[in-house]
Amino acid sequence: MIGRIAGIILEKNPPEVVIDVAGVGYEIQLPMTSFYQLPDIGQSISIITHFVVREDAQLLYGFVDKFERTVFRELIKANGIGPKLACTILSGVSARQFMQSVIHQDVTTLVKLPGVGKKTAERLVLELKEKMQKLSNETPDSAMSDTLAQIEVPSYETPAQDPKDEAYSALMALGYKQAQAEKSVKAVAKDGMSSEELIREALKSMI
């Protein structure tokens, strides 16, 4: 099991980051709530990870802290929820917001997430309410803070990319349809916005 990756950021292609560890580049998928907090390319980072082994692939998912990973792991135990959908859910809402939505049986918020229909939302509440309540009671607020360990080092030069194109790609990677992704990005786009700002605002507009 790979529980943590520490190295230098080589690439950021939301929702994926590539981290160089002793010359080996690890591709890691992150919920966008974690991706927003990554430092710049060329800086050092330490990320909590969850390793998934499938017949056709070996995948790494990354998180800001152990609390977020714990929520992710509880999510993928639920019927019909795989790692990709769990990552998408935690891109639309933070781990703490998801926990509170389940505890308070807020199906309205959950169904606005891609891939989560009413039946899935109701099943999540039914299966996870007790676990989320227990996690809430056991986890201090300080453990839910969104922080990443990082050390600044000189950044590398990277080719400029169109922020809107990056935002479209990220939203579609998270499960949104192309038309929905383009519509939401165009609705929130303002001059000078970065791709991460566009993604954040587009996700907010759809929740």
Rank of each mutant, 00 (worst) to 15 (best):
I9V: 07
I9M: 05
L10V: 13
P15F: 02
I19P: 07
D20V: 11
G23W: 11
V24W: 05
I28S: 01
P31Q: 03
S34D: 06
P39M: 08
D40H: 03
G42F: 04
S44K: 12
F51Y: 15
R54Q: 14
E55Y: 05
D56H: 11
A57H: 03
Q58M: 15
V64M: 10
F72W: 06
F72R: 06
F72A: 06
E74P: 03
L75F: 10
N79F: 00
G82S: 12
G82R: 09
P83D: 08
A86M: 02
A86N: 02
C87M: 09
T88E: 01
I89E: 00
S91R: 02
G92K: 07
G92P: 13
V93R: 02
R96S: 10
Q100E: 13
V102G: 00
I103H: 07
D106N: 15
D106M: 06
D106E: 13
T109W: 05
L110I: 12
L110A: 11
K112G: 08
K118P: 05
K119F: 11
T120I: 12
T120G: 06
R123Q: 14
R123I: 08
L126I: 15
E127N: 09
K131H: 07
Q133W: 02
K134I: 07
S136Q: 15
S136L: 10
T139P: 14
S142G: 00
A149T: 12
A149H: 06
I151W: 01
I151D: 10
S155M: 07
E157S: 08
T158S: 11
P159N: 11
Q161D: 04
P163S: 11
E166K: 14
A167L: 05
A167E: 03
Y168H: 04
S169M: 15
L171R: 03
L171V: 06
M172I: 12
A173V: 01
L174K: 01
G175H: 05
A179Q: 12
A181I: 08
S184K: 02
V185H: 03
A187E: 14
A187I: 09
A189Y: 08
K190A: 14
K190W: 07
G192R: 05
G192L: 09
G192E: 10
G192S: 12
S195T: 04
E196T: 15
A202Y: 08
I207A: 12
I207R: 15
